[in-house]
């Protein structure tokens, strides 16, 4: 059992007066894929976005409880959101490449951090795109616009862009829900290749996807964490009735 890299304790989140997360206790070991599942509005995406403080952007959000990344409180007054987001990267539902070339997209984080060495940048671009399993498809037009790519390719370029800043944790917010089945399965393959080197936390609506790729699965409902366990157990032998009902399609 590897060490816990990210821990959440008694996490509450309020949008104004509405309590969207009602005391979540959930820890993540280093490496491997955890899937967050649950019906729409259950708080899984909201929870995911607390982990790299993306909810900071939304007005009127109050967060209580603690989230610790390697023992450091993410919400401590001294916490640096810029640094946090370098170590905890995020991929979104809609592929959101910048309107620049593929090459520039991948190295954007590094270049802004001040890296100028062309050889090093080239190497990072190739490595990241290979890791994201999109290198072969784009290597001949690295300097063309990323917007010209298909949705699935864009999403993998976005994953490469995150990998290029070498985060430890990668958060994915329904990364395949805007993609066709073929592209989705390519993303899944990509994630499976990455699970040995990164801690991956993905929100998904697609139960089959969770069962295919996740080592662990956490089931959320109504702002609460109902159950978290090895994926196999969640799907074959859930401890909670609610989980079983959801998995078997009785609601949600």
């Amino acid at each position: 059992m590897s060490k816990e890299i990210l821990t959440t304790q008694d996490l509450h989140l309020y949008y104004g007066d509405k309590e969207a997360l009602k005391g979540i206790n959930l820890n993540f070991d280093a490496k491997g894929i955890t899937a967050l599942i649950g019906p729409s509005g259950c708080g899984k995406s909201t929870y995911l976005r607390t982990l790299n403080r993306m909810n900071d952007l939304i007005p009127n959000v109050t967060i209580t409880g603690t989230i610790k990344f390697k023992g450091e409180n993410l919400y401590a007054p001294s916490a640096d959101t810029v640094q946090i987001r370098k170590e905890i990267g995020m991929v979104f539902q809609q592929p959101n490449p910048f309107p620049f070339s593929i090459y520039d997209n991948v190295i954007y984080g590094l270049r802004i951090a001040g890296e100028k060495d062309k050889e090093k940048l080239d190497a990072v671009v190739e490595k990241s795109l290979r890791q994201a399993a999109v290198w072969d498809e784009v290597k001949d037009h690295l300097h063309e616009s990323a917007l010209a790519l298909s949705g699935g390719q864009q999403q993998r370029v976005c994953i490469a862009r995150v990998l290029a800043v070498s985060p430890e944790i990668i958060l994915l917010d329904e990364p395949t829900s805007a993609l066709d089945p073929v592209s989705s399965s390519q993303i899944e393959t990509t994630l499976l290749n990455l699970r040995h080197d990164y801690t991956i936390i993905t929100v998904t609506h697609n139960l089959q996807q969770a069962s295919r790729i996740a080592d662990r699965t956490a089931f959320f409902m109504n702002g609460e964490l109902v159950e978290v366990d090895q994926t196999k157990n969640i799907f074959m032998n859930p401890a909670e009735k609610q989980t079983e009902d959801y998995i078997s399609g009785r609601f949600g």
Partner: peptide
């Protein structure tokens, strides 16, 4: 310019 672009930048660790 779409909000997702802003999120993308911030999520990469840009200020």
């Amino acid at each position: 310019i779409d909000t997702t672009q802003r999120e993308g930048g911030l999520a990469l660790g840009l200020s």
